[in-house]
Structure formats: structure tokens, C-alpha cells
Design a protein around this nucleic acid. Sequence first.
DNA 1: CGGCATCCTAGAGGATACTG
DNA 2: CAGTATCCTCTAGGATGCCG
Lengths: 125, 125
Amino acid sequence: MRNFPEPEVFHADCPSQRVLDTIADKWSVIVIYSLSQQETRRYSELQRMIGGISQKMLTQTLRKLERDGLVERHVYPVVPPKVEYSLTPLGMTLTELLKNICQWAQAHWDEIETARVHYDEKGDR
Amino acid sequence: MRNFPEPEVFHADCPSQRVLDTIADKWSVIVIYSLSQQETRRYSELQRMIGGISQKMLTQTLRKLERDGLVERHVYPVVPPKVEYSLTPLGMTLTELLKNICQWAQAHWDEIETARVHYDEKGDR
DNA sequence: CGGCATCCTAGAGGATACTG
DNA sequence: CAGTATCCTCTAGGATGCCG
């Protein structure tokens, strides 16, 4: 591994920037946030509670998180099928950080909306 | 405003989810991270230190963050032009959280790479 | 120096239909 | 129930060129 003079996240050829591609994603943040609230969740449960997510994006996000070792998928051999998702230990180390982000979003969205209106009004003149 | 029974971030029609569209973005995270390390930074300085970002994305990200009231843009009326960017007080409330994310990415990227290789090997068989 | 305007293309992501 | 498969649209985002 190269020895970077600056924080590695600034370097395009460093894997830590690729990691950001995964977790700095709206749906990933929300899915992990959801899984952090309860031990396990079923597919349909996630779909129901996350507003605005399409089935395609949910599946895709879950696969990506599973591939990255953040989420675990457990299939029960029953009919009708039952699949449960949960966080891995690695995923759990991330939850606190993402929970903070979600809470920040919920706490400050109004200030941002105000700033946007303000900014747009200035530009329209 | 409606009264949401669950955390608002789960609701498609709630602004806090729209906020995530802004800050849960790779370049936004890195730009804010960069601005958190130093009082102000010039445009070219940001471009130089953030590997892999195009000029278009840098400008676009900075505009978005400015519109959202997270970043301030200061133009000096000199020639050649000089423009400095800095965080607003609101932006600063976010830096700690995003710094944590970047540091997490730098600390755990190797585990994620390993998980990916493992996952891909399983699937290829 | 710090942009904006334009063109262009790969891929994101929705809608719909089908299946073990 | 928990997906996969297909199609189709739209936009993110790179490359290039120009400007105050």
C-alpha cells in the first residue's frame, strides 16, 4: 500500500474513497438506519417502512450492503419464503455515525429549506 | 407540517429525506471534510486536493452546498479572480459527523474490500 | 483564476410483468 | 413473499471549448 501524505480519502486511487461511494448514498443510509432500530427486518417490512424506495432499489441496496459485509441475509427454507436482514458487527460500527446523520437531517431540514428559498429568490432577480 | 408517527426520514414526502439527497453524497462529504480542516479554501486548492473530482462536479457541489446554507462563497474583486470558500455555522454543525464518516471509511476500507472479494468468489462458483 | 455553456454517453433508476 | 427480468426514460457526470 502506498504511503499517502494527506488523508487517503482525498485520493482517487484509494479504496477509502470507493467506500464512500457505498455508504454516502441516501438509500444505504436509510436502510442501515432502519436495521439499527431492530435486530432483524424482513424484506417487505423494509419496503413498507421506507417511503419512496422502489423494489429494485431496495434489493440493489441490500445486495450492495451484503457484499460489503455490512448486512447479513438469512433465508428461511419455508413457503411462502421468509428472508430476514440484519446488521453484521462491522455494520454496527457504522450505525451510530449514520444515526447521527439521520438525526441531523431531521433536526436541520427546516434551516436548509429556508436557505434554499433565500438563495433561489436572490438568483431569480 | 404533518405529524409523523415514525421518524420522518422514512417518509418520502418529508424534507429530511431530501436533505439526505444533499449530504449523503460522496463529493459533498469530501468537500465539507476538506473545508473543515482549514478556515477557507480557494477553488483551485479544492480541485487540487480532491483527487478524481471534475471541475464540473466541484462547481456543482459547491453551488449546492452554498444553496443549502452549508458553505459560504466569498469573491474578491481582484484580477486574476480569487474566490474563497468556507463553512457556515450550520455547515460546521455537520462537520464532526462527516469527519467521523471519512475516518470510518479510512479505518475500515480493507475489511470491506475483503468482504467484497469473498462475496464475489462465492457467486462466481 | 474560476468559472459557465454545450455536447454526449453510460448507467441510474422507475414501471411492469413474471416466478420459485 | 421475495425477489428476477425486461424495457424504457432520464439524468449524472465526463470532455471540451470559451469567457470575464
